[in-house]
Amino acid sequence: MTAETPKEYNLSHNEAMILEDYREQRSVFERLLGIVKNTLEESVAENKIYINAIEGRVKAEDSLVGKLERKSGKYSSLSDLTDILGVRVITFYSDEVDKIAALVSRTFEIDWENSIDKRRMHEINSFGYNSLHYICRLPKERFFDPECPQLNEIRFEVQMRTVLQHAWAVLDHDTGYKSGFEVPREYLRNLNRIAGMLELIDEQFSQIRSGINDYRRQVQSLVSSGSFDEVELNGDSFSNYLELRPFDMLNRRIASINQAEIHETSLSRFLNVFASFGFKTLGDIDRLLKRDSEDAYQLAAFQLANTDLDIINSSLGVIALCSVHVLKQGGGVLELTRFLETLNGVSTSNKHRAESLFRVSQNLAFLKK
């Protein structure tokens, strides 16, 4: 079986030599592609940047020939072409493009003279092509093989763009200027309108995420300072509140009844319970804790008095606290059952537990006041 005969093209002598060099070095480009992708993937992971994808390719022979034909006489050697090897990093948000750019500049040697920030061109139909393009080399301190020194000599391109820019570029490649025919003006107008909308969406996604991050930092600050009345009750704020471990003191008092150990469990499910009570801020929970902790302790003490439990769940104190709240609001078995169903889901055991709680509570002083 003979090797496949290379295609012949109508190229000048110099361009034919470039093509021959490409054929001889293609395996080196393929190896470099793997090194560059792995290096980027490791760097992105180390810096905890969450991205959509890292893609790469070595330019196909037909594509190279097409470029040599279109730009006949421009290139004197294969090394003049900086996009034989190309890698693309696709981010979710536009502000992360700059983070990736900083990472790439720390990871590779950058040919700044030939690198391009197409985002600054501001052309009306440029949205899908607003990539940041860096021309790079692999530094020897990052990777070096003395038997293949050209790995550190080859220039390659790293493109950085958002997922919306990438999606648009792929779609526009099939319908826009590279489609092989002139697109009628009415369709170009609609394409440009869509590009404008996508660009606005791209910007809004980044602004919304930035706003959410600012809100989360503000919540963390308010919770840390104890300004609970200023913090709306929601998933983020409740999670930050739980990090303060506000129910630990109550749980330790309850555990001391039987010298029991405390088994830690997630208390995030109590968010729905507090919301069902009509609580609006973390201040509502904090006031409940300060006001009813003693009565919650007494309720738990009556429950554990005749048991030998040596392990209790960290949710026990909060359950007692919520039960006291329901009872002080005039609730009975029905209301206690609803509370337990909100916490645990619908089950026949909820009613039995509610009946037990209600029966024990009749011995407590706070219901006799």
Rank of each mutant, 00 (worst) to 15 (best):
303 Q>P: 00
287 R>H: 14
314 S>D: 14
315 S>I: 07
282 L>P: 12
306 N>H: 14
282 L>G: 10
292 D>W: 07
271 L>A: 03
299 L>V: 09
299 L>I: 09
317 G>E: 09
306 N>R: 14
319 I>Q: 11
346 V>E: 08
321 L>R: 04
325 H>F: 06
334 L>S: 03
324 V>T: 03
346 V>K: 07
311 I>H: 06
300 A>Y: 07
317 G>I: 10
301 A>C: 09
307 T>H: 05
310 D>T: 14
321 L>Y: 04
298 Q>N: 14
328 K>L: 15
344 N>A: 04
321 L>N: 06
291 R>F: 11
321 L>T: 08
287 R>I: 12
293 S>T: 11
296 A>P: 13
334 L>K: 04
301 A>H: 12
338 R>C: 03
294 E>G: 09
332 G>E: 10
300 A>G: 14
272 N>Q: 05
283 G>D: 13
308 D>E: 15
279 F>K: 11
314 S>A: 15
297 Y>W: 13
271 L>R: 02
340 L>A: 05
309 L>D: 15
318 V>E: 07
289 L>S: 03
317 G>N: 08
316 L>C: 01
292 D>L: 10
274 F>W: 04
272 N>S: 13
286 D>W: 06
310 D>P: 00
315 S>N: 13
321 L>Q: 05
315 S>R: 09
309 L>C: 11
267 L>I: 11
328 K>H: 07
329 Q>G: 08
301 A>K: 15
335 E>Q: 13
333 V>D: 05
287 R>E: 14
336 L>E: 06
341 E>D: 14
314 S>W: 11
326 V>T: 15
272 N>R: 08
284 D>V: 06
293 S>R: 12
285 I>W: 00
292 D>P: 08
269 R>K: 10
269 R>H: 07
289 L>C: 02
345 G>H: 04
298 Q>W: 11
276 S>T: 05
290 K>Y: 07
267 L>W: 11
291 R>L: 14
297 Y>V: 08
314 S>H: 09
283 G>T: 12
275 A>M: 13
276 S>L: 03
282 L>R: 09
312 I>P: 03
345 G>L: 08
323 S>Q: 02
318 V>R: 02
310 D>Q: 12
297 Y>G: 05
339 F>T: 02
318 V>M: 05
299 L>H: 06
282 L>Q: 09
328 K>P: 05
300 A>P: 11
314 S>E: 13
332 G>M: 01
345 G>Y: 09
269 R>W: 00
308 D>P: 03
310 D>W: 01
329 Q>A: 08
284 D>H: 10
323 S>C: 12
312 I>W: 07
310 D>E: 12
272 N>Y: 08
314 S>P: 09
332 G>I: 00
345 G>C: 06
278 G>S: 09
316 L>V: 12
336 L>K: 02
332 G>F: 02
322 C>D: 05
289 L>Q: 01
268 S>K: 12
304 L>I: 14
299 L>W: 03
296 A>K: 07
307 T>Q: 09
346 V>I: 11
